[in-house]
Design a protein around this nucleic acid. Sequence first.
DNA 1: TCCGATTCAAAAGTATTACCTTTCAATGGG
DNA 2: CCCATTGAAAGGTAATACTTTTGAATCGGA
Lengths: 235, 235
Amino acid sequence: MGDRRNQPGTGLHDPVLDKLGLAIASGELPEGHVLNLDGIQERFGVSRTVAREAMRVLESMGLVRSRRRVGITVRPIAEWNVFDPKVIWWRLAGPGRNAQLRTLTEMRVAVEPVAAAAAARAAAPGQRARIVELAAVLRRLGEAGDLAEFMERDVEFHALLLRASGNEMFGALADAVGAVLRGRTQLGLMPHRPVPEALDLHEAVAAAVASGRADDAETAMRALLTEVRQAVIPG
Amino acid sequence: MGDRRNQPGTGLHDPVLDKLGLAIASGELPEGHVLNLDGIQERFGVSRTVAREAMRVLESMGLVRSRRRVGITVRPIAEWNVFDPKVIWWRLAGPGRNAQLRTLTEMRVAVEPVAAAAAARAAAPGQRARIVELAAVLRRLGEAGDLAEFMERDVEFHALLLRASGNEMFGALADAVGAVLRGRTQLGLMPHRPVPEALDLHEAVAAAVASGRADDAETAMRALLTEVRQAVIPG
DNA sequence: TCCGATTCAAAAGTATTACCTTTCAATGGG
DNA sequence: CCCATTGAAAGGTAATACTTTTGAATCGGA
């Protein structure tokens, strides 16, 4: 997620969309708030066309609903496409950051074990090899105490597993999981040094995936996430 | 999902978006295929504005990328926002239906146990009561062999659990899970009559959620899904 | 007077059209 | 082989007309 800055695809990001999306996701424009096209045109100094395009995209994300004679109304979060990468990004960038990290973590806890099992069944040979390699790299970095590099490789490890699962829905979560991993360290929720047990479990997951033992991969991943799981349960 | 009929905003924009989305999701317009605005205008007999709005939305879903001088290119599925309800819907409506049901089922298997645990912690009193009530209704309908009504209540049961989890990401999957449940019966993947074990497990989940036993809820839900799980593993 | 039905005009999005501006892949000459 | 030119296609602005919605004013009967 964090590395979409070059944006070769999305073109020069429509700043209007970004600012409005952020304003809504942050709660600055609360549920029920009504905007209108003229207001958007004026607020951002853009033409009607651009204002409408931004509005349409927000509408397709479920953030607003446009109705004649009424205007553009901000919808409740239950209507949002909360899996849309942009929505996730906006929520992470605002005061809802913490709540977003929590729900995303819970999602991880649910998905990653099953994704690991699927990867054990479906991963391509090159992916299996890379996963094993990454587990070894993680051990080295963990024992050396290189936290920053450890995190980057950890992100790669989890993202690769999700993408190797053969389930494009799991794969679509890879960037979000990366954001969670990075977010956790930023919030100081990570142990100052990876515990040996975690290093063992990364290797266990990798070995199980490499040799196609789906159940073992799932079990090991579940164990790897037990610690994470505590962070989700408010207490 | 299935009930998006109401839309009062019968815009001219939606049909274009829908047809293009379907054409892409169905593979009729394969990855790499290049469209252009003039082509869309002509194909659907709409103005440039409408064509552009539809294109923008498709772009925000990751289905296409618009680049100057090149045109509008269909992107690979790995770039799609596969959690977008519209994308799910389009895939279910086309020849990818089966693959979509498979990945969605796998998603269910991953998410529902954790969602059940979360619901046991977070559900509102009214939701707990309704879940218990639904489990009882399911037993009655199941034993009476009323398959059609059983399915509708089952959809409600699972959707409510997801929404009661307190995790809006889980809640956002409720409609999709409903589509899977309905899709499974349409494909004849369901037992002709709910097995007694399933009825017991629905009640076990409900009881655990009602009394806040998160671990039990998770375990029971996982058991409930074991049968479903077999359908995911090809072979 | 009061109350319900009808009418009407304003508000706001929807859609079309015309016309510039910017980008950048392709091309072709040096 | 490199670099300047060029033209296709998207990006964006502006003016204008249309349609839907809704709330208020109006009107007629009890």
